[in-house]
Design a protein around this nucleic acid. Structure first.
Lengths: 193, 193, 193, 193
DNA sequence: AATGAATGAGCATTCATTCAT
DNA sequence: GATGAATGAATGCTCATTCAT
């Protein structure tokens, strides 16, 4: 499997750095190759095309998000607690990899529709896990019964996403992690409380 | 003033259609000119360059969003009601202009950092109006006192935005307008209710 | 006759200024029109096309050079003296119109072959007058008998032209007029003296 | 070093041909690439931009002029003889490369100020060598003591240049080489002899 | 497996000129 | 005569991908 070879990861990591530092449109394949320490042509031994590099970046990195959430799901704690851990996990991973935060929140969104729809496929797994938490919360009577799960998921993800994007656009100058409790509270209790 | 001339609006409207139908990266100036029924060169009598067309699209159309919200703000109704009207207005405008919805939710996000930072300037006005509603709600005792306005704004806008983007990505096949009450309820009361 | 109308001269003079200040390639018709205080379209009531403006600039201005030389030719003085007066006249006219010097020595030479061959037609009259001086000098025994008139003319004009071009390229910072006697001496007696 | 690779020279030579045959303004990069037998993009592996091709043409070709004059300077012959050889060399090189003659005398002069100032830098080296001959002649007592070297250089170069330009504009229809002795004589002894 | 030189399609923008008023 | 809004042809350059070595 190509994905397990060292050069594969080398190239994916190089792509994150190059995109974060140069922006999506200035992230030429040749720059990524140089950063990865391989020849341009070598890229094509591991990836079908440039788009394939970018979707791989997302898949590899987002995979960690999903894995963590899977572990959270298995814990024997209330759904509200799981939701908190998910938010905190999401914030933490991007807080600890500033380059990745720039790439996922700003740069990769400049990609074309095709790439974005592939990215959404990857996201779907993550959102499905989120749905599981929500269902569990409803079943356990923690969340309102009549809730529309799709809308609730959009609120949770939209709020998390917008919060992180704002943080990135403000040059990551405040402490994202400290926002988790209030985000959690808002999502659960709304603005009326 | 160039903005009041008929050709200016013709070109802006043509740009929306061309971008929606062809995608951001396939929206060549010549295509926009053809759709607008003018020569390529005429574009440059009204716009400085291609980027100027795109930011104008956003400014012209987003301006309507802001104007409506301004009117809502002046009404003598509770802040929660104003919030509802704002959500409903946002949904309605994009529901009634499917092309515009595609452009704002998907295509214009592919633009480069420069253009997006200009777009954000335009957005800022809109978000400031949202802040006014939130402040009013707090002052009137409708919303929780201790609320972090910035986070609340990010929840409201993030939820609205994510809801519409999902609707667009699902080919606008369900009735977006009907979602407004539940979105409003979620934002106000959260998932616990 | 269009050439006698005030706007004709206005436009020619505007062209000299615009070309001198902006350079040949930045001397758009619209800029010349603005400088002349007329509408773009008005230019085309007086000139066939842009090239026609430029050739007219040369014709109008170079005409003065030729007229002066004609007067010199009629004087009852030795050919060497006439040659001196010609050099001095050439230097004086450009020394006193710095804009024109830039235009003739630098900018107009960027024109294409067609325009330059038309310019050469205008120059021919001037060079023919120079030939007359040379012939007269030979007939009077002032200049060497066996001289090749064409080559002699090329030396005289080449030297004058190169001297002025160097002066212009050195930002006209020394006194061109003072060079006339030595240029005259060099042409007559060469470097051996 | 890129300059030593065969394709570099291929492209420079192709540029001379294309410019001579089509004129400066009709010498598109794609035409040069086709003439050189390479793809458009290949040009940019060897040259920064189009201007870089043109200045390289001048530098490569003019370099030969300068090298030859350097050799002439080292010979143990009188300065007048060196001057003759320099004129003859200048005439010969352009006589034997008709395309190059057209390019240097007519086409490259249509370039914009930036390019021409770069061309002048290259020319300067050549003119400095000419100055050396002149100084030597003065020191050796061959040329007049009181001579203004700058003016003398302008006479020599102006005469050579004008002679060749006239030859090119007359479609190179007479034998340029035969003019060298008389040009030399005129420069040395002037018109009085 | 790895290289990197070579490829070539694709597009925003300028500006001389026209012509309806 | 005078205007100036509208026209539309024309081109340098980038960069993802290939393939001979």
């Amino acid at each position: 499997m190509k994905r397990d070879k060292p050069k594969y990861k080398q190239i994916v990591d190089a792509a994150v750095i190059v995109i974060a530092e140069n922006g999506y449109h200035q992230a030429q394949v040749s720059k990524i190759a140089k950063e990865a320490g391989v020849a341009d042509g070598t890229i094509y031994l591991y990836f079908k095309n440039k788009e394939d590099i970018l979707i791989s970046v997302f898949r590899e990195k987002m995979g960690i998000f999903a894995e963590n959430v899977k572990e959270i799901l298995e814990k024997e704690i209330p759904a509200t607690e799981k939701l908190y851990k998910m938010i905190d996990n999401h914030f933490s991973l991007l807080y600890n990899d500033r380059h990745l935060a720039i790439v996922t929140q700003l740069e990769l969104r400049q990609s074309n529709k095709d790439l974005r729809s592939q990215i959404n496929e990857v996201l779907k797994e993550y959102l499905t896990l989120l749905d599981s938490i929500l269902k569990e919360g409803i079943d356990q009577g923690e969340f309102e019964k009549g809730i529309d799960i799709r809308l609730a998921r959009q609120m949770v993800f939209g709020t998390i996403d917008e919060t992180i994007t704002s943080w990135v656009m403000n040059d990551q100058k405040y402490d994202l992690l400290k926002l988790a409790p209030e985000v959690h509270r808002l999502i659960l209790k709304g603005m009326i409380g």
